[in-house]
Design a protein around this nucleic acid. Structure first.
Lengths: 195, 195
DNA sequence: CAAAACATGTAACGCGTTACATGATTTC
DNA sequence: GAAATCATGTAACGCGTTACATGTTTTG
């Protein structure tokens, strides 16, 4: 239930609606946390019931009424407490590695195609991260916003390192498997197990 | 629903029970896929209904009867088809990075403690991976088991690279934040937002 | 005129975890 | 005598996704 704390984190910075929060998620933490509006709305109203937030309705002429959420003292306390306590590593589920693990069932061309496809996906993601970093760096507001940008940029940093790790590994693996082909291991590692 | 395909992958290698499959999961793919028995049993019986597996009961004197699952032709076909088709990147959810992102709400000592705690967790995981790799390499059977070990070792490789990326980033980040402390950014980046 | 932005929700489904339920045998 | 291993499951719960439901205004 980190969604709750991510919401508290943004609302600690400023009060806003569920819709606004969705924008913030998509613009700043999408690389390690995503959220749907259909999950956020019920979560916000539950948090209000729990006393972590208050809600005020702002009527509008040209749009449906906005529900502006504001963090309470209890909300701030719960946020700070959660932030400070250590947390374990999340358990991973990477379907792509399931495919690689059972790569012995595929033809060499198929496994190489699989690796190259994934390589292009990771390169695209890396490009996006580098673009975001560039924008952060060039952002004129960043001079007065050190607080907000410093940690955001830090989390982007680990994303970039991890993407680089994937890219390196995929490039090496493709080379590795292609090489085998020529040096006579044929019929060995890359033959499929059965039909 | 990659669990289904992981089960097919192991059963393609040899027929076995749910309990046996659990051992295989824990011994070979735990670093990127974990599974509970309580999820595997219903999945296996569903797969049998779908014609991907057949099941034979082996009665035992000293233990409850074993249900041995065997992959069918249809199962093999479905496995091979799934393995060959490309797959997108999984969406990440890393609660730890939520904490770092809102690190501005914490005292500098708290955020450093958080980072150091995570660093020790990643180092421990790295040690486990290196230990597994060492065991694979030293394993005498590996000479006749190239097929089985090659791809397993490959998936371990990306785990090691990613752990190294985390370790490097965490070490740099700790140094980064500790350094700030001394060079006068005090009261800037690391002051908390509010109470 | 179509699409995107603004603004809110509910319901069903999928997948995974945890707790509950049972019980013999082997190892420390 | 306690814990781990062998061997099977069910039920409840948590969290996330997708589809459904509604309607105006602004932008292209």
């Amino acid at each position: 239930m980190s969604l709750k704390y991510a919401l508290l984190g943004f609302l600690n910075h400023s009060s806003m609606t569920g819709y606004d929060l969705k924008q913030h998620f998509d613009r700043s933490v999408r690389h390690f946390w995503s959220a749907n509006l259909s999950q956020m709305y019920p979560t916000l109203s539950q948090m209000e019931k729990d006393g972590l937030l208050t809600m005020e309705v702002e009527n509008q002429e040209k749009h449906p009424p906005r529900k502006v959420y504001r963090i309470t003292g209890a909300g701030r306390r719960e946020l700070k407490q959660w932030l400070a306590e250590p947390i374990g590593l999340p358990s991973l589920r990477i379907p792509f590695l399931v495919k690689v693990f059972f790569g012995g069932c595929l033809e060499k061309e198929e496994i190489i195609a699989l690796l190259k496809d994934h390589l292009s996906r990771h390169r695209a993601l890396m490009d996006r991260y580098l673009q975001i970093r560039k924008e952060i760096m060039e952002h004129p507001e960043s001079k007065g916003m050190e607080k907000e940008f410093f940690f955001g940029n830090l989390t982007l940093g680990v994303g970039i390192k991890i993407e680089q790790a994937w890219i390196d590994w995929l490039e090496e693996s493709v080379a590795n498997i292609e090489e085998m082909n020529e040096s006579g291991v044929r019929g060995g590692v890359l033959t499929d197990q059965r039909g």
